[in-house]
Design a protein around this nucleic acid. Structure first.
Length: 668
DNA sequence: CCGCCTCGAGTTCT
DNA sequence: CTCGAGGCGG
């Protein structure tokens, strides 16, 4: 082949391959198969090997260079890469927009551009006459590290700009690792026995700082370009939105989700829409960047402390975080169940600081490979209660699988774990933890005594003053005043509240006795069915099964509890103290306009507390339960409702009622 | 015997 | 709120 023809062919191939790269990475619309690309790439590489003088800097074969020896060079950005002021609430956005309007004049229209805030590495790319000459990390904003060889390996970064090129332009973007690529990358690391990367941001930042660009070339990196720094000869661009279009037209990968809005109200609405869409993306975004569109307005707004007044970064409170699990402790519940919980290095998740989390049971802990001493991922997804998802990355050296203690940490009794059950239990009925937890349950839940809190109960227990429910009712004001925090008046009030709680209905007394499997509802069932404690105490298993919701298992557990002499003595003691052991008014089923209906209440109501609303419904004969099923008549929804209840109601076709409808319902 | 439903129990933070 | 498990109807 004559030399000139070879040169023509090389140029053709270069042009075609570069176009294919843009189609694949930028337009997301491939123009050739991977295999075809490889064939053409090999052809070009062969020509270049034979005619080194035909190699050009923008040739796709030139994306991987020689390994770097020594440190990365520091380079000054031509114009500084500022940082954005953060906002986390709708109100803060509104306040900012207000400030913008005031500074620009209240009747001047302002348009905003919203873009996803990519969680990756901020990068500055310098193009001279259309050629990519240098790229650097953000660094401190003034100077960063020159990582040009590594950036050249990223297919989505054009080595030569498309179309007319200005003499000089700095192009800014965020290099990131797509989630799909991140998963594969970590799988490869696992296969090679290497430590995995904790998150995509670390993986991309680490990839950019490789000394050998052939390693970076193997990493699944991409870029979203979002603007320019210094630019020469681009005076025709007068808005940010136009700049994004221009960048895209010149072969840069701009994010298709970017939007231009003309009112501040739309911003709040878009922010919410994106929060929902966020989980579907193949990359992580931690917020939304909001910019005033017009360059003229941007210039007039200026900056404050190096931060532009014309832009804000809206950030969602992260719903997961990584922190150290310091210790796994055991708490023994009122039924003797051993409950492991994690002591965490305090960390902020979803706007609140988390320092502890429950870990359910041994099997669950080890299935998730949770170990004391490791860094773990803490999550607060949708719900309020934090959970530990698993270890963040590799186990630290020396951390060991969790083992439930073989003996109760409080009384030393050997722990049992019945076949097929998930929970370990301390079988000692006299275990101090059970007595204490039972007392707390009485004060906080069953009798719900005002003026005495969990901490006071614990202190009374520790001081040895109150170690049982009867002792609580024999407590004197003088004794209570030995506890910190109680003066004459508060102690007197508390003693009165304790005495008043003797009047709680029979069903609540039953709940407070700590009979296994007897809670709020079963207490009520038993009170109604048997009427008196004597009838209940002497009931056989067969008689117990007659009651609604009591099967053989519960019947046996209840009968066994009442066979125990200590328990029978407790009942007698409480009866002598004046507690109620006969069903009264409260236990009589209410007949009313809403008899036979079942409601569930979720969220915060304006005119009542949840308890008041539930009591009002029950007073009219309705049954209030706490989970939605197809049998639910209606779900009453207040502010900030539980999402799972709403979706379940929608699925089951259960009507959703507002507070005003509830009021109408109560009126009849 | 399976699947739905309900109950019990343990729980986090401000 | 969520999980585990008993109750119970199909």
């Amino acid at each position: 082949m004559p030399r000139s023809d070879t040169a023509t062919r090389a140029a053709e191939l270069r042009e075609l391959l570069n176009r294919a790269l843009i189609a694949y990475h930028v337009d997301d619309d491939p123009i050739m198969e991977d295999a075809a690309y490889d064939v053409l790439y090999d052809e070009l590489a062969a020509i270049e090997a034979e005619h080194p003088e035909l190699v050009t800097p923008d040739s796709p074969t030139q994306r991987v260079g020689a390994p770097l020896s020594g440190q990365f060079q520091k380079v000054r950005h031509l114009s500084p890469m500022g940082s954005l002021e953060k906002v986390t609430t709708d109100e803060a956005i509104a306040k900012w927009a207000d400030d913008v309007r005031k500074r620009l004049g209240t009747d001047e229209p302002v348009a905003y551009v919203l873009e996803p805030k990519i969680d990756g590495s901020a990068i500055n790319l310098v193009y001279e006459n259309g050629a990519f000459v240098r790229g650097a990390t953000r660094g401190d904003g003034v100077q960063g590290e020159d990582v040009t060889p590594n950036l050249r390996t990223i297919g989505a970064i054009p080595l030569q700009m498309q179309g007319d090129a200005p003499p000089l332009v700095e192009v800014r973007g965020e290099v990131y690792m797509p989630l799909s690529g991140f998963r594969e990358f970590n799988e490869r690391l696992v296969a090679e026995g290497k430590p995995t990367a904790p998150n995509p941001r670390n993986a991309s930042a680490g990839s950019l700082r490789q000394k050998d660009s052939s390693i970076t070339a193997q990493r699944p990196l991409s870029i979203w370009v979002y603007g320019t720094g210094r630019r020469e000869g681009l005076d025709e661009l007068t808005t940010h939105w136009e700049t994004l279009q221009w960048l895209r037209a010149h072969g840069f990968r701009t994010n298709p989700l970017a939007e231009r809005v003309e009112s501040i109200e739309e911003i709040a609405e878009r922010v919410r829409a994106w929060e929902l869409r966020r989980a579907e993306l193949d990359y992580e975004i931690d917020g939304i960047v909001i910019k005033v569109d017009s360059f003229d307005q941007q210039a007039r707004l200026g900056s404050l402390h190096e931060r532009p007044r014309w832009a804000r970064a809206f950030k969602w409170a992260p719903m997961t975080a990584v922190t150290r699990l310091n210790e796994i402790l055991i708490r023994v519940g009122r039924t003797g169940a051993l409950n492991p919980w994690a002591v965490l290095e305090p960390v902020e998740v979803g706007g609140v600081t988390i320092s502890r989390a429950t870990l359910h049971n041994e099997e669950d802990i080890n299935r998730k490979e949770i170990r004391a001493g490791d860094d773990v991922i803490v999550q607060r997804a949708g719900d309020v209660i934090p959970q530990i998802v698993g270890p963040a990355g590799r186990h630290r050296r020396g951390t060991k699988e969790f083992r439930m203690p073989t003996h109760c940490p409080l009384c030393g009794t050997e722990v049992v774990k019945p076949e097929g059950e998930a929970m370990h239990r301390c079988p000692n009925r006299a275990c101090p933890s059970r007595g204490l937890e039972a007392l707390i349950n009485w004060v906080m839940a069953a009798a719900d005594i005002d003026g005495v809190g969990e901490q006071s109960v614990r202190r009374l227990w520790d001081l040895g003053i109150v170690r049982s429910v009867p002792e609580l009712y024999r407590l004197t004001r003088e004794q209570l005043m030995e506890v910190d925090g109680y003066a004459e008046i508060s102690a007197g009030n508390a003693i009165e509240a304790i005495a008043a709680s003797k009047a709680i209905p029979f069903s609540r007394v039953l709940f407070g006795l700590n009979i296994p499997d007897v809670g709020w509802v079963t207490g009520q069932t038993l009170a109604r069915h048997f009427g008196t404690v004597d009838a209940l105490m002497n009931a056989t298993q067969e008689e117990l099964v007659e009651a609604e919701g009591i099967g053989p298992e519960r019947a046996e557990a209840i009968a066994e509890w009442f066979r125990d002499d200590d328990n029978r003595r407790l009942v007698e003691e409480l009866r002598d103290l004046g507690l109620r052991f006969e069903a009264g008014e409260e236990e009589r089923p209410v007949e009313g306009p809403l008899t036979g209906k079942r409601y569930v209440v979720t969220g915060t109501l304006e005119r009542f507390t949840r308890e008041e609303a539930e009591a009002a419904l029950e007073a009219r004969g309705a049954k209030v339960s706490d989970s939605v099923s197809s049998k639910t008549t209606g779900l009453i929804v207040g502010e900030e409702p539980g999402k799972s209840k709403l979706t379940k109601a929608e699925k089951a076709g259960v009507p959703i009622l507002s507070e005003s409808l509830l009021v109408q319902l109560l009126r009849g």
